[in-house]
């Protein structure tokens, strides 16, 4: 049976309800406790931060693959690592760069640590669930892609993304759209090939494979060399799990990762409201008509008297 995710469940409406009734004993139908764990054979990337040397070959490969505009500084210019955006924060993804490498000077570590940032391709993406024109799609291969021809430009996905990934082409007056990594879905992932950045990396920092295999590999690496890694695969459970996952020898909160995101997908925080909507729609009319009848009872009684 095809797995139901929450979105298709909600969208399915009546048809979904009928299907549930028909397969009443299936696990998915036991609502309440079910979480969408991701497509079973979706692909992912394991990033071993301990191996990255900050050469930015991945950035160059991404730029070429996605036909992005030429950057202000060339890809072999290390001065970008010292650039700071507002708030003293390192560079982030922009409309011109879907992936960026950040440098962290960690006290006590021999070399600086480099961190590659791009869309993490969540199992249950916040951007997707927040989009009111249904522009986003999580493909069975694992990529979170979007249809820029329907984007209205409300930018709720940017508000919703817990990783601050989607960028927006504010500079375009006629056709501004969301810009973010799509895991090279159109040109590579769809055909089973790894994203351009993964393939270009000279240090083999990134491993492309099925997400479930990558998880095994990640834990294997940690148990093989417990001193070389912190015991945490970032992305295994964060916000419901992500396709891109990370290994590090430095605690993740020291190198810019948000470790307070929790394990629930973002949509779970919105569900209390969403669940209340149909209840208000059904209960309010009767309730307030009742109030109306109650507050006008004296007039009604008078009318009754006049009739008799």
């Amino acid at each position: 049976m095809k797995k139901l995710n929450r979105r298709s469940f909600l969208k399915g409406g009546l048809a979904g309800g009928a299907a549930i009734a028909a397969v009443g004993t299936s696990k998915q139908a036991l609502a309440g406790t079910h979480n969408f764990g991701g497509y079973p054979d979706s692909m992912g990337v394991l990033v071993d931060l301990t191996k990255c040397v900050g050469c930015r070959t991945c950035e160059a490969a991404c730029n070429k693959e996605q036909n992005l505009p030429e950057p202000d500084k060339s890809f072999d210019d290390p001065s970008v690592f010292e650039e700071r955006r507002e708030g003293g924060l390192p560079r982030r993804t922009t409309e011109k760069a879907y992936t960026v490498v950040q440098k962290y000077d960690v006290p006590g570590r021999e070399h600086p640590l480099f961190r590659k940032v791009q869309c993490n391709h969540c199992n249950e993406p916040a951007c997707l669930t927040s989009c009111f024109v249904n522009a986003y799609k999580k493909t069975p291969e694992g990529a979170v892609i979007y249809d820029k021809t329907v984007c209205v430009g409300c930018r709720t996905c940017m508000v919703a993304c817990p990783f601050y990934i989607p960028a927006y082409s504010y500079s375009s007056p006629t056709n501004p759209v969301i810009k973010k990594c799509i895991m090279c879905y159109d040109t590579r992932l769809k055909f089973g090939r790894p994203p351009a950045c993964v393939e270009a990396c000279p240090q083999e920092v990134m491993t492309f494979g099925k997400r479930k295999d990558l998880l095994k590999l990640a834990h294997q690496r940690i148990s093989d060399k417990p001193d070389a890694y912190v015991d945490h695969v970032y992305g295994e459970n964060e916000v419901g799990g992500t396709a891109w996952m990370y290994l590090s020898d430095v605690p993740f909160d020291k190198i810019g990762y948000d470790t307070h995101l929790g394990t629930q997908p973002i949509i779970s925080y919105v569900k209390e409201f969403l669940g209340m909507v149909p209840m208000v729609l059904t209960i309010w009319p009767a309730l307030f008509t009742g109030f109306h009848l109650l507050s006008n009872r004296k007039d009604a009684a008078k009318n009754e008297e006049n009739k008799s």
Binding site: L10, S130, F132, V133
Partner: peptide
């Protein structure tokens, strides 16, 4: 004024529907 493509305001209504989103309800 704020929407990137204001001429697409009716998209959530008639063109491409995302009914499970809060903003869909607001619209």
């Amino acid at each position: 004024v704020d929407l990137g493509q204001p001429w697409r305001l009716i998209y959530p209504m008639f063109v491409s529907l995302g009914p499970a989103a809060v903003l869909f309800l607001v619209a």
